[in-house]
Design a protein around this nucleic acid. Structure first.
Length: 423
RNA sequence: GGAGAGAUGGCCGAGUCGGUCGAAGGCGCUCGCCUGCUAAGCGAGUGUGUGAGGAAACUUGCACCGAGGGUUCGAAUCCCUCUCUCUCCGCCA
């Protein structure tokens, strides 16, 4: 959520900036609701003031044993007027809030302007795609013929777009989770968390999934609860409502969670394999930082995620998302894309964003500077470190051998019971 | 699932029959004084949000005592609903 005062005072600039993201806010409705709210609020406050004064006088009169009936009668009508105005006010405030909650974040000045994914510039490309003396197979073929992935049986259990890992495949998934968590906790200083996988409506609203994107979420029947689409939601909400002392910043958290996405409207894309599933595992990185450091923190967060790919020896590149391709809450986003030999393309495996104070305002996450009055909103950041299913897919494809086996990269072997190959 | 208790400022904790309560007292913290150092002592200050005025210090309106609603001229205090926490019972991994 943007600060209403800021929007009001910089309306033209805000509109111009959001236009680069293809935003469709109804600014007339916004202005109207805002102005009416201000007018009504001013009157209410004035009336409440006179009521407060009168109440004090009534108390005084009663103490002196003087009759206060006249004053009380007078205040009865004031009270009625306040009540009526308050009803009005709530209506306008709700309008305003609905609009405000649906306005995306303002892109950082360094974000390239563009329409869609094709306009995302490549920031850097690391490593070299492996050369094969044969036609590399898709990870779904490799996985199914090794007996470590079975999408048919997963469909029997649930439906399309759910994974079933078996044997070394399940072990590989678990190994990667531990591998990633160990690096982030032991080397990068993140605190490990294991949050709820189901969250309430408020938490979803705080991080920006709601109110606009309810269709992408799985909702529980008879509960106002949702399956998390990413650990970002529960982990960011750890500090919802908190005022943190400055010394505690920056805070780093990591979490392994499954993620659930209904991916409404994505049918037909990536129908094979692990790339686009309704349920997948992810190790997430979340940071809370002071505003002046948040862009440095974004860079280091990105490096933390990159480290995993480097250790696994996977080729990847980093792209900067352009204004038209960024997510709703982000002020700036880097995507890491891993090389997928079967299709010969780089595929997203991590997304690292700085949300600035957009989520913090919604979730009311503040910090207090020593010796300074008042509080300030923190900046929140997060990134995948990494999407585990897609990492498995990349490993299978990049380390496949002519005989159909798959080499396990050295760094992962301790997590695979010393195994160096899946055959 | 059943029965009961509770939710107040950074923390502990008071709030009487609703009125001078944004909230006693203590702890903590900040500043000052004092003390050879430390400790103790003394004095002052010490919530958040939002609006107005001011360069600022600050002054001032409104709101906030788990959340929402109600009663009332007036609610931290009374009533209702919800949420959460704790205790006991049941059930269960």
């Amino acid at each position: 959520m943007l600060e209403i005062k800021f929007v009001r005072q910089n309306l033209a600039a805000v509109q111009q900036s959001l236009a680069t993201r293809g935003d469709k806010t109804d600014w007339t409705a916004f202005n109207q609701a805002d102005q009416q709210r201000t007018t009504i609020l001013a009157e209410i406050e004035q009336l409440r003031h006179s009521r407060n004064v009168a109440s004090e006088q009534i108390a005084q009169l009663k103490r002196e044993g003087v009759d206060a009936e006249q004053k009380m009668a007078e205040m009865r009508s004031v009270g009625d007027r306040i009540k009526a105005l308050e009803k009005d006010l709530i209506e306008h405030e709700e309008n305003l809030k609905t609009i405000l909650l649906s306005i995306p974040n303002i892109p950082h000045a360094s974000v390239p302007v563009g329409q869609n994914a094709e306009d995302n510039p490549v920031v850097k490309t690391i490593g070299h795609p492996p050369a094969f003396g044969f036609e590399p197979k898709g990870h779904w073929d490799i996985g199914e013929s090794l007996g470590i992935l079975d999408f048919g049986r997963a469909a029997q259990i649930t439906g399309a777009r759910f994974p079933l890992y078996l044997g070394a495949g399940a072990r590989l998934e678990r190994a990667l989770i531990n591998f990633m968590l160990d690096i982030h906790t032991l080397e990068h200083g993140y605190t490990e968390t294991l949050p709820p996988f189901i969250v309430n409506r408020q938490s979803m609203t705080n991080t920006g999934q709601l109110p606009k994107f309810e269709a992408d979420l799985f909702k529980l029947e008879n509960w106002d609860y949702f399956l998390i689409p990413t650990a970002e939601v529960p982990v960011t909400n750890i500090h919802a409502g908190d005022t943190l002392p400055e010394e505690r910043l920056p805070l780093y958290y990591t979490a392994y969670t499954p993620c659930f996405r209904s991916e409404a409207g994505s049918y037909g894309k990536d129908t094979r394999g692990l790339i686009r599933q309704h349920q997948f595992n992810k190790v997430e990185l979340v940071k809370f930082a002071a505003p002046e450091t948040s862009y440095d923190e974004l860079e280091s967060l990105l490096h933390n995620a990159e480290t995993i790919l480097e250790r696994l020896g996977l080729a990847y590149r980093v792209i900067a998302l352009c204004t038209g391709d960024m997510g709703f809450s982000a002020a700036k986003t880097y995507d890491i894309e891993v090389w997928m030999p079967a299709q010969g393309v780089y595929r997203e495996i991590s997304s690292c964003s700085n949300f600035e104070d957009f989520q913090a305002r919604r979730a009311n996450i503040r910090f207090k500077r020593k010796g300074q009055k008042g509080t300030q909103l923190v900046h929140t950041l997060n990134g995948s470190g990494l999407a585990v299913g897609r990492t498995v897919a990349a490993l299978l494809e990049n380390y496949q051998q002519a005989d159909g086996s798959v080499i396990i990269p050295e760094a992962l072997r301790p997590y695979m019971g010393g195994k160096d190959r899946i055959a």
